[in-house]
Amino acid sequence: MSALVKSSIARKWIMALSGLFLVVFLTQHFVINITSVIAPDTFNEWSHFMGYNPLVQFLAQPILIGGLIVHFVMGIALEIKNNKARPVKYSKYSGNANSTWVSRNMIITGLVVLAFLGLHMYDFWVHEMTVKYIDVQPEDPTRYLHELKEKFVSPVRVGIYVVSFVLLAMHLWHGFNSSFQSMGAKAVNKGEGLKKATYAWSVLIPAGFIFIALYHHFTH
C-alpha cells in the first residue's frame, strides 16, 4: 500500500481527487455566500445551520480540513520531488513557447491561496470558535450578515480578498481541467465542452466571491 501511495500516478490521483473535493466545497461555499447579497435572511439561516449542525461541525468540517491538508501537503511534496528531478537548470528555458505560465506555477498560486486561507480562518473560523466555545455566547441566528459586512469594511482586507481570488481563479483554470486528465478521463482532450465548462467555472466562481466582497464593502 505504501509503495502504491508513493507512486507518481497514485499521487496524481490524490491531487486530482482532493482538488475536485475542494471544487465541490467551493461551489457550496459560493451558493451560501451569494445569499448574503440576494436573500440576507436565508444567509443568516444557512450560516446558523452550518455553524451549529453537529454533522457539519464534527463530520463535514474535519473532512474538509483533511482534504485541504492532503492537497497542500501533497502539492508541496511533489514540488520538492520535481525540483530534485532537475538539479541543474537550463541557462535558457522558453517555457512560454509550449505551456502557460499558470500551468507551470501552480505552486505559486497555491501558496498564495494557502496564505489567504490563513487570513480567512482567522477572520471567520477562529471568530466562530471564540463565540461558541471560549466566550460561550448564546445562539443568535441573526448575527452572521452583520459580522460578514463588518469584515469587508477595511479596503485593505477587501484588496487582499480580490487579489487572492484572482490567483485562486488562475490555480483553478489549470487545476480543475487537469484533474480530469490526471484521473484518466481521455474525454478531456477530445471533449472541448468539458474543458470549456471547467474554464468557465474557474472564472465565474472566484469572480462571484470578488463581487460579494466588493458588494458588502460598498454597501456597508
Binding site: K6, S8, G95
Partner: peptide
Amino acid sequence: DIEGFGNCTNTGA
C-alpha cells in the same frame, strides 16, 4: 519512479 524523473503536472509542454 526509480529512475528519478519528476511528476507530471499536465502543463502539456
